[in-house]
Simulated scan of single mutants.
Amino acid sequence: MGVRYSKPPGHITCRSDGRRALDWLFQRSDFADAPRPDLVLLDLNLPAAGWQEILEEIKSDPLLKRIPVVVLTSSQVDDDLRKAYDASANACMRKPVGPEDFADHIQQFVGFWISTAVLPPSDEDN
């Protein structure tokens, strides 16, 4: 029996493609005042910039590298999971097919990372 939330803990921000996600993460362009995320959910099939490029940029940046990155995938190919972990993903999650199951999984997963996992403070907090 999993933990249920009436809504996801924290605030969730979605970006429609990889370029916009990078602009938001790096506070560029329209996102100069965007807050730093506590957790990044990164879809394996994100349009524009590929997930590997985004993950590499996050993990190579001193201000972003400690943010947990969870790769979401519908792939059943084990090699995709290996690539994600080799690229320093903190976790991978296979996406359920139905939207309700997907929402439940995301709520539980985000709940774990926000409420249970102990994460280091961001460099901006120091």
Rank of each mutant, 00 (worst) to 15 (best):
G2R: 14
V3N: 10
R4N: 06
Y5E: 08
Y5R: 14
P8C: 14
P8A: 06
P9K: 08
P9Y: 09
G10F: 12
G10Y: 10
H11I: 07
T13G: 02
T13N: 03
T13P: 01
R15P: 00
R15S: 15
S16G: 12
D17H: 09
D17G: 07
R19A: 09
R19L: 08
R19E: 06
R20N: 15
R20S: 14
A21Q: 01
D23Q: 09
D23S: 09
W24M: 10
Q27G: 06
Q27V: 05
R28Q: 08
D30I: 12
D30H: 12
F31T: 01
F31D: 00
A32W: 01
D33R: 06
A34C: 07
P35V: 02
P35K: 01
R36D: 04
D38I: 00
V40W: 04
L41T: 11
L41W: 06
L42W: 02
L42E: 02
D43P: 12
D43E: 14
P47V: 05
A49Y: 03
A49L: 05
G50Y: 01
W51Q: 15
W51N: 12
Q52A: 08
Q52C: 02
E53K: 03
I54Y: 00
E56N: 11
E56S: 13
I58Q: 01
K59P: 05
D61T: 01
L64S: 02
L64A: 02
K65S: 04
I67A: 01
I67W: 00
P68R: 03
P68S: 07
V70Q: 02
V70F: 03
V71P: 02
L72T: 01
L72E: 01
L72M: 00
S74P: 11
S74Y: 12
D78C: 10
D79L: 15
D79I: 13
D80N: 10
L81D: 10
L81K: 11
R82G: 07
K83D: 03
K83R: 15
A84S: 03
A84F: 05
Y85H: 13
Y85P: 08
D86A: 13
A89K: 05
N90Q: 07
N90T: 06
N90Y: 11
R94H: 04
R94G: 08
K95W: 08
K95Y: 09
P96G: 04
P96C: 06
P96D: 04
V97H: 12
V97S: 15
V97M: 14
V97L: 15
P99Y: 08
P99V: 11
F102R: 14
F102V: 13
A103T: 11
D104C: 09
D104A: 11
D104H: 07
I106D: 07
I106R: 14
Q108C: 01
F109C: 15
F109Q: 08
G111C: 01
F112Q: 05
F112R: 10
W113F: 02
W113M: 02
I114H: 04
S115A: 12
T116L: 13
A117K: 03
V118A: 14
P121Y: 09
S122E: 02
S122C: 04
D123S: 06
D125S: 10
N126L: 14
